[in-house]
């Protein structure tokens, strides 16, 4: 069973993700702030983390950085979930080491398939390739 950790300061968003992912048979845990999220990630070793960027105190960038730096959590793929839609933010997310970037608002029904596909590819060892693809996409966008 796929285990997903949602780190977001907004309760409705956490609930939204939880119900939709659980509907697809995933196991979901929540954290309302970054510090709590890092702690849970270390403890529970989720398969994937959905990470909000704009949070008080520790923001998403800092949380991602801390997770990727910690060998207990640096293998867990991070999907940024944020209202920040600018290309430079997306680039930053990937640059830090995230593998996917979902812009709010998003269709919650697509969340689970996206996570599945991601985990599938990563299990095949394509993690860096995946990031490379995303960066290439971004570059293409930037050029436009």
């Amino acid at each position: 069973m796929t285990r997903v950790l949602i780190i977001d300061d907004e309760a409705p968003i956490r609930l939204l993700c939880r119900v939709n992912l659980e509907a697809e048979g995933m196991e979901v845990s929540e954290a309302a702030d970054g510090a709590n999220g890092i702690e849970i990630a270390r403890r529970e070793q989720p398969d994937v983390i959905l990470l909000d960027v704009m949070m008080p105190r520790l923001d998403g960038w800092e949380v991602a950085d801390a997770l990727l730096r910690d060998e207990r959590t640096n293998e867990i793929p991070i999907i940024f979930l944020t209202a920040r839609a600018e290309i430079r933010d997306r680039a930053r997310g990937l640059d830090i080491g995230g593998v996917e970037y979902i812009t709010k608002p998003f269709n919650p029904l697509e969340l689970a398939p996206l996570i599945e596909a991601l985990i599938e590819r990563i299990s095949q060892g394509d993690r860096d390739e995946l990031r490379g693809e995303k960066l290439a996409e971004l570059r293409a966008l930037t050029r436009e």
Partner: peptide, 18 residues
């Protein structure tokens, strides 16, 4: 403002879809 608008929109749109 974009972010502020997106946050409630995410819930509205998301829960509607749900």
């Amino acid at each position: 403002v974009s972010h502020e608008l997106r946050a409630p929109l995410t819930s509205i749109y998301g829960f509607a879809e749900t």
